[in-house]
Every structure is written in C-alpha cells, then in structure tokens.
C-alpha cells in the first residue's frame, strides 16, 4: 500500500442488494430476485485505491451506487468514519454526500449539455452552500479547473466544446468540488482512447497524492486497475471471490476465476503470443437471478467437484496464500505473461 496510512476510512460489511423481479401489472407479485450484490465485505484505507474488477453484470456499479446511497441495501452495513451510512439522515446524510463523490463512466452523456462548465462544476455548491460562499464560487471553480489541468478561462464553455478526456476532467473537477475523502470511480476511463486514458489516470494519481484521497476504482481493464490500485477485489456474480494487494492478486492469484481473467488479458507484445497460456472459459456468466448453488463459478470452472455444488466457498485465507480466496481448492498458478 504505497500511499495509504493504514487507517480504515470505510468498512463494508456483508452488503446485499437484491432487485425484486415482479410479475403482474396491478398486483405485483415478487417471483424472484436479481442478486446483484450478495454479501460483499471489504475495508478501504485512507489514501488508498481499491480496484474492483469483474465481468459485465457482476454487480460493480450496483456496489458503487450503494456506497453513494443511490440505492438502498437489502442487508448489510457500510461504516464511514464510525457511522453506518445507511442509517444517516438529514444533516448527517448531507455530510456523507459531501464526503463520498463519484466519477461516472461516460464522459459524453454524464454532463448536462445545456449548462456551462462553470455551472456544472459549481452545482454542488448550490446544495452545500457552506463549502463555498456565493461570492467565492467563481474563484473556486477556476481553481478546480486548474487543478484538473483545464484552462480556467474556459469556465463559460459548454461540454460539447471539450473532448472526451477533457469532459472526464470536468467530471473529476465536479467530484472534487466538495473536498471529499472518498471518490468512487465507475469505469472512469473505459470510454477513452489509450492516449487520453493515460492522461486521466495520471491526473487521478496526482490528485490522490496531493489531496490524500481514497479511491474505489471500478473497471474491467485489468491493466489499468493494476496500474492504479493498491489492493484489488475480484467480483463474480455479486460476490468478491478474491481480494488482496495488487501484487497478491496479479502475481499470486489462487482463485480459478481470477486466474482465467488474468490469463485472458491481451498482452501488448506480439512476441509473447506463443508463450501465453490463456485459460479458455466455457460458456457464459449465469444469470444473477438464478445463480448456481454452492460456488457460483462452478458452471465455468475446470476444477469443479461435487463439493463445489454443495457448499459455498467462503472468502477466507487459504493454506496456500495469506490473502482471502473463495475457492475450496485454492492453489497458486502463475498466469501473467
């Protein structure tokens, strides 16, 4: 943990979010539930970046929305600075909203096209008037623009006058406006070209050092996640299946899903083609409305045995490695080329 001080700032405990599936128009009958997030626990330290990776639909964005209190959990707690965020209301909830901010995936649609950049970045000040008194706002917005590497003179421009990477900077400036401690980044660079992506990743790292921010960095690009993260959690069908330091996850993964995921990352080196040992997973991710019994990965796992269908593997330390892995048969396998 390069940047972190070790102090736990956010502690997530057994978080669950099930979306009900209903039938009928007048009398809605619950016929099942999408188990989008199902028992997720982790800790986030001050100044640290926790990466969250996993395939589409595994619950990453739902987790982010829960932490932003945009969704209410079915069960579980998330303790921030000693208080469960799901029990907050009124002034305390407003303070939470200040403290945890989010950067969205799509820089093209997440900004209101009819507002100027100044209005967009300054908007949080309207709600949280205590942070910047009215007369001070223009100056604060210009400071923020400068902080994220945009020209402060462009304060009156509209989003369409900026490129994708610049728009993502605007989103970051807005997230920083209220001086949060935690920023949840949901696929912040996925829509950007590599050259622009690198600029935004560098910016996030610079801001973290300067402002001692903690990030939850959600992405499906494993190379970007490794680059920016101190620790990484791997999600599959609503559960974290393996969590550890960046080095533990990438160099010493013990869960078959992590191993498959890492082995499938295309390596930008054509000479490595011949030596790569890609683990080919069969089939698709099962529906989160009807996950397999026992281990949720067992329908695609080449090591699955009877025990895997009967007993759910817990996310605990396994004999082979000190970091937690939710596999009955956890074992080391080096997969990164």
């Amino acid at each position: 943990m390069a940047n972190s001080t070790g102090e736990v700032i956010l502690s997530v405990d057994n978080l669950v979010k099930h979306f009900p599936i209903t039938q009928g128009i007048l009398f809605k009958k619950k016929i099942g539930a999408v188990q989008a997030v199902d028992g997720v626990s982790f800790e986030l330290h001050r100044g640290e970046t926790l990466g969250i990776v996993g395939e589409s639909g595994c619950g990453k964005s739902t987790l982010a929305k829960l932490l932003m209190r945009l969704e209410h959990p079915t069960a579980g707690r998330a303790v921030l600075n000693g208080r469960d965020i799901f029990k907050l209301s009124g002034g305390e909830l407003r303070r939470l909203r200040r403290n945890v901010q989010m950067v969205m995936q799509d820089p093209y649609t997440s900004l209101n096209p009819r507002k100027t950049v100044g209005d967009i970045i300054g908007e949080p000040f309207e709600i949280h008037t205590e942070v910047a008194p009215r007369g001070d706002r223009q100056r604060r917005v210009q400071e923020l623009l400068e902080l994220v590497g945009l020209n402060p003179e462009h304060i009156n421009r509209y989003p369409h006058q900026f490129s994708g990477g610049q728009r993502q900077r605007i989103g970051i400036a807005r997230a920083l406006a209220l001086k949060p401690e935690i920023i949840v980044c949901d696929e912040p660079v996925s829509a950007l070209d590599v050259s622009i992506q690198a600029q935004v990743v560098n910016l996030l790292e610079k801001l973290q050092d300067e402002l001692k921010l903690s990030y939850i960095f959600i992405a499906h690009d494993l190379s970007v996640v490794r680059h920016i993260s101190d620790r990484v959690g791997v999600m599959y069908l609503g559960k974290i299946v393996e969590i550890g330091t960046e080095e533990e996850i990438y160099e010493r993964p013990t869960h078959p899903y992590t191993q498959a995921l890492l082995s499938a990352v295309p390596v930008p080196d054509p000479d490595a083609r011949a030596h790569r040992d890609v683990i080919r997973l069969e089939g698709d991710v099962p529906s989160p409305a009807n996950p397999p019994s026992g281990c949720r990965f067992r329908t695609r796992c080449w090591k699955a045995q009877e025990k895997c269908a009967l007993e759910e593997p817990l996310l605990i330390r396994r004999a082979v490695e000190p970091h937690p892995s939710a596999c009955h048969f956890a074992e080391l396998k080096h997969v990164v080329a």
């Binding site: 390069a2 590599v194 050259s195 992506q197 690198a198 600029q199 990743v201 560098n202 790292e205 690009d221 494993l222 190379s223 970007v224 490794r226 680059h227 960046e246 990438y250 990352v265 390596v267 930008p268 080196d269 054509p270 000479d271 990164v336 080329a337």
Partner: peptide, 28 residues
Amino acid sequence: YKQPAHPYTEGLISSIPRLNSKGQELAT
C-alpha cells in the same frame, strides 16, 4: 512493437498501462 517508425505509433504504444508498469507515470 519492437521499434515503431512513427512518433504517433510510439506515443500510442507507450501510453498503454502494462501489467507491470506499476508506480510509474503513464506516458501520454
């Protein structure tokens, strides 16, 4: 990939985060 012959190609290739580019600022 071994040796780009155009500055733009070089820029593209060097701005990819690699699984082992930890701790360095990415080239842009």
